[in-house]
C-alpha cells in the first residue's frame, strides 16, 4: 500500500532544467516540439487522455490519427473538465513570452495574436497595466451563436474551437466577438517545415489555412496530454494560473504551484472582462494590485520592437 514516491526536490530540479530550456527558447521551443514529434522514436510512450477522461500510456504512433478521427475527437473534448484560466495582472511585466510561444506553436504571423498583451487602464487616470488577452472561451459565446456552418463550436470541456476544414470565411464570428479575440488568415498563412504533409489538428489549428478564422484554443492539444497551455508554460513571471474548475484547482504556469481556484478568486477580488455583456468568460483576472515592478509607458510593436507611445482607445 504505502509506497515511497520520488522526492520532490529531484523532480523539481528536473522540472527546472526543462523550464530553463523552455524559457530560454521561448518562441522556438514550441515549434521544435512539433517538429521533433515528427522525427522522434515511434516506440516512445507518451501519456494520452482518452475521451472518457482516462489517462493511458500509448505509443506515439497511436497519436497519428487520420483527419476524420482527429475531427471527431477534437469536437468532443474531455469529459468532466471545465478549463479555466486566471490571469494575475499584478504579475504581468509585458515579457511577451506567452505571445511568442503561442505564435510559434500555432504557426502564426507576427501580427496574428491568439493572445495579445494589451496596455490599458480601467478609467481615465486610474493607471495603466499590462493585460494579456486570450480568447475568453465564454460559456455564452457570441461567436458560436452566429456561425452558419458549425465551424466554431463549444466543447463539453468549455473550450471554443474552430474547424479550419469547414470554416467558410464569412467572418461573422470576428464581428460578433466583443473581445476581438479572433484573427483571420487574410493571405497565405505562415507555413512551417512539415506543414505541407501534416494532418490538420483542430486542437492546434495547424496547419493554418488561407481564408479561415483562427483564435486561441487554450492549447487543447496540450490539455489532452495533461500539460499546461503554451502561453501559460512560457510565462516567466507567474502571471498565469490554469486548471479545471470542476476540480476547483489551478496551477501556476511558472512555479507549477497548484491552489484552490475558488480561494484564489475570492481572496483577490477576481473579475471577468466586460461582464455586462453576459458572455460568461472562462478567463478570470486578478486586479493589478501590489505590483512589484513599475509600469513602463511605451509599447512594443507587433514585431516586438520598442514604440515610443501607446495608442489607447
Amino acid at each position: 500500500m504505502s509506497k515511497k514516491i520520488t522526492p520532490e526536490a529531484t523532480s523539481r530540479r528536473n522540472f527546472l532544467k526543462k523550464f530553463g530550456i523552455s524559457v530560454g527558447t521561448a518562441s522556438a521551443v514550441s515549434t521544435l516540439g512539433i517538429l521533433s514529434s515528427c522525427v522522434t522514436d515511434d516506440e516512445e510512450k507518451v501519456p494520452m487522455l482518452t475521451t472518457d477522461g482516462k489517462v493511458i500510456n500509448g505509443k506515439k504512433t497511436e497519436l497519428k490519427l487520420n483527419l476524420n478521427e482527429m475531427q471527431i475527437r477534437s469536437r468532443e473534448g474531455l469529459s468532466g473538465k471545465k478549463f479555466v484560466m486566471v490571469i494575475d495582472l499584478a504579475k504581468c511585466k509585458n515579457a511577451r513570452k506567452c505571445m511568442s510561444a503561442c505564435q510559434g506553436a500555432h504557426h502564426l504571423k507576427p501580427e496574428q495574436h491568439h493572445i495579445n498583451v494589451l496596455q490599458t487602464e480601467n478609467a481615465e487616470g486610474t493607471g495603466f497595466y499590462y493585460q494579456p488577452k486570450p480568447c475568453m472561451h465564454c460559456d455564452n459565446p457570441p461567436c458560436t451563436k452566429v456561425c452558419p456552418v458549425d465551424a466554431t463550436f463549444k466543447r463539453k470541456d468549455g473550450i471554443v474551437l474552430i474547424d479550419n476544414e469547414r470554416c467558410i470565411g464569412c467572418r461573422f464570428c470576428i464581428a460578433a466577438c466583443p473581445y476581438s479575440a479572433r484573427v483571420f488568415n487574410w493571405e497565405e498563412p505562415k507555413y512551417y517545415e512539415g506543414d505541407e504533409n501534416a494532418v490538420y489538428d483542430m486542437e492546434l489549428n495547424v496547419p493554418q489555412k488561407k481564408g479561415t478564422v483562427s483564435k486561441c484554443l487554450f492549447s487543447a492539444d496540450r490539455l489532452r496530454i495533461g500539460k499546461l497551455p503554451y502561453c501559460v508554460s512560457a510565462c516567466p513571471n507567474g502571471t498565469y494560473w490554469f486548471g479545471d474548475a470542476n476540480e476547483d484547482a489551478v496551477t501556476n504556469g511558472t512555479s507549477k504551484e497548484t491552489v484552490r481556484l475558488s480561494t484564489l478568486l475570492s481572496d483577490n477580488g477576481a473579475y471577468t472582462l466586460l461582464p455586462e455583456l453576459g458572455t460568461k468568460p472562462s478567463v478570470y483576472y486578478l486586479p493589478p494590485k501590489d505590483r512589484t515592478f513599475e509600469y513602463k509607458a511605451g509599447e512594443l510593436n507587433y514585431l516586438g520592437e520598442e514604440e515610443p507611445k501607446p495608442q489607447h482607445g
Binding site: 473538465k81 495533461g226 490554469f242 479545471d244 484547482a249 489551478v250 496551477t251 504551484e257 497548484t258 484552490r260
Partner: peptide, 9 residues
C-alpha cells in the same frame, strides 16, 4: 491533493 496539472498543497 492530486489535480490535473499538479499537486495541490
Amino acid at each position: 491533493v492530486k489535480r490535473y496539472f499538479g499537486n495541490m498543497a
